[in-house]
Every structure is written in C-alpha cells, then in structure tokens.
Nucleic acid binder design. Sequence first.
DNA 1: GGCATTACTGACCACTGGGTCATTTGCGGA
DNA 2: TCCGCAAATGACCCAGTGGTCAGTAATGCC
Lengths: 212, 212
Amino acid sequence: MTKEAGKTPESTKVRRRKDARPAEIIAAGISEFEEYGFRGANLARIAKKAGIAKGTIYLYFPSKEALFLAAIETHISSVMGESEAGLAEVEGTTQELLTQLLRNLYARFVHGEAQALFHILLSEGDRMPGVISDYHAMTVQRGGTLLKNILARGVERGEVTPGPALETPHVVIAPAVYFAVHTIMFKNTQPLDYDKYFEAHLDLLVRGVLAR
Amino acid sequence: MTKEAGKTPESTKVRRRKDARPAEIIAAGISEFEEYGFRGANLARIAKKAGIAKGTIYLYFPSKEALFLAAIETHISSVMGESEAGLAEVEGTTQELLTQLLRNLYARFVHGEAQALFHILLSEGDRMPGVISDYHAMTVQRGGTLLKNILARGVERGEVTPGPALETPHVVIAPAVYFAVHTIMFKNTQPLDYDKYFEAHLDLLVRGVLAR
DNA sequence: GGCATTACTGACCACTGGGTCATTTGCGGA
DNA sequence: TCCGCAAATGACCCAGTGGTCAGTAATGCC
C-alpha cells in the first residue's frame, strides 16, 4: 500500500512546494511506520518515498519522534473518521444493529489499515502515552459508549437480558480484537476462517454457550 | 522486573564456569528481551546482568538472534510447562471446569510472565516463524483442543447447547486475550477492573447477551 | 536580467550497538 | 610449582542511522 504515490510525476528537478511538503512527508511516514514500526523506520527511506532529500524532512519536523507523532495523529483521525457513519441512528432489531456494528468493526480492524495502526501502538505505545490516550478515547471509549447505548435500548425493548456483560461491553467485541491479534501473529502459518469465526462470534452473543 | 538478579554474589574476580554460563546468559537474556523486545535489547546490558563481559556471550551463542531464539525457547517451555497441570481430569460441571480454566488462563496471561512473552511475539514475531509455530502449537492449538473436549463433554451431559461457537472455541477465550491486550496498551492510563471483567466474561459464556 | 530570499540538497558528523580477537587469567595435571 | 589450555575479557572495529549545515538553485520582485 505504499510505493510511488505522491511524488512529482516527471522530473528529477527540484521543486519548491513549502505547503505541500508536510502532508507528503506524513504520508510517506505513515507507510514507513506501518511497515517497520517506529524503531525500524528509516528516515532516508521516508525521504525517498516522499521524493525529497533527508534534510528536507527536518525543515518541517524537528525529529523522527515528532514526525511519528504527526503521522500517527493524522492516521488515527483518518482511520477513525471513516467509521463515523452514524450507526446509532439505524433502525432495526438489536441483533441487526450488533451484526452491522461487528461487520463494520471486522472490516476495518481485520482487513483494513486500522490493524497496522493497532499493531504499532500495541508494540511501541509505551513511548507515547499521549497518543495512547487519544487512541483509547477514539476507539475503546467511543465504541464502548455506542455499544452500551445499543444494549441499553435492547434491554428496554426486551431484546436483551440484563447482566454483568452489559456493563463491560468490552467482552462483547473482544472476539474481534482476538481475531485481529490472531491474524497479526499467525496469518502466515495458521490463518482463521473469517466467515466461520464471525458466525461463532455472533452465535456467542446470541445464545451464550451454556444451556440454561 | 530485572535488576541484579543472578550474578555471583561476591567478587569482581573472573570465574571459569563453562557449564553454568549458557543458562545464566539465557536468564539474563529473558529478562532483557521481556523488557525491551528483540530490537531494543542490548548485548552489553545482557552481559552486565549475567555478570560477564560482552565477548563471553559469543563463546556460547553465535549471534544476538541465536541467543534470542534460545531464550524464547526456554521461556516458552518454562511458562507453558507450569500450566500443564491436568485440567481435563477434574470432575465437575462444565461451568466449573470452564471457570477453572479461565481463572488459570487469566492468572498467567494477565498477571504472569506469559504476558511479556505474548507481547514480544506479537510485536516481533515476524522475524521468527519457527518460534511462532511452536507458540501456536503450545497455546492456541493445545488450549483449543482442551476446550473442545470440555465443551463436547458438556454437550453429552446436556450442559452445553451445540452451535457454531463450539467449533471455534477461540471465541470462548477471546475476552481473556482482549484483557491482556488492553492491559498491555492501557494499563497506565485506563486499567480495567479485573473482577468485574472476569464476571462479565463468564456471564457472556453462561447466557450470551441476547434474549431468546 | 539582476538580486534577495529561502526551499532544498546531500555530504558529513556523532553516536549507538552488534560482533571480533589479541591478550589476560583461572585452573587442572604433571 | 610450573605449564598449557581453554575460559574470559574489553578495547576495538565498522555498519547503520538520526540529525546538521554550508552550499545550491528555484522563485518572485524590481
């Protein structure tokens, strides 16, 4: 998902484009950081991807860390912005809402770029508590609230039976995170069957496991 | 979790102990790799922890990578060995078995050293497909089989209702993995309440979420 | 066209850290 | 006690990389 995306098409000629640079550098940075993480990322390579000299990066960002922060920040809002599409508004049974929410979650989290971001933050989040907080707010926090609302409404409608699991909605989406983790670790050796897994996840939510 | 653990108590005196060295170096390596991961680990620091000179490491291991592999291998079998204690043998209802299995899982995975191992492999597993395979076999594979047996027996007893979730037992333990992931990422900023979470997990298994 | 401004360059610096090896030192045997 | 070997040392080597800066050239103004 990288390659020669945003460089001047023709020319080995130098161009002065002060206002376009930062975004280009950030784009190159995102692709680099996604692929190699923070430590593994290489400034010379980022410069190459952006079609500029290494020194130019330092005209716009004071350090590798600063570029990383800017890139992550940009990436988070881009990735999260997409998934904004008002879910809570949709009418339907709780099961329909949940299914839709989960499909959406899996789509971005398992196949999309959200997974790379997750991987980076999981691996190297220690170095940037601020970013971690933002990330938490935009994912866990927001998703949790949304889920709680859906479930609360479900209880009112008699579609959901109250219980501890509703106050800790984490457990409801946990299997999706597990799927992402499993994919990251084992995709090359022991990949999971997506359809089966998704069905099992839904089944768990619908009826639990133990007979009553 | 490191510090001056396993060095010769007294002395700045050099000692020749060919047979004890590898284990000491591995021990120091484990602690270092746990704290910094592979890339972040520093050979000089490992040597210091082991109470030897850097060069000595290379008398026993040809490279940083080799030491890492040896350390991980040792660590995996130590961590996994502990949890061997035959669970499948215990008599009791399916719910009791599941509860016990989960308690055990949480205990090692959330508080124990298994989490550090998980974190390393998740972050830097790409570089070592062999280790990843081993890890998969010793955790996912084995745990999955165990869980399938428990659930199958539960079905026979009429304690478990059959369904897709039983063929993908991943979803059953997924919340535990989620907890570990959440802990790794957010322990300093947004820690979860363990007891509540555990209860919610169990609740999910017992009765699902949606009313029938 | 000439000039001032400044975006841009890339050779260079400084430092880190994995890996080497000539030298030193502990130790067992004669 | 002395010798020879192998264990251990740590100064050194060098590749990789974040960061610098004197010089270059694009651009806009007169």
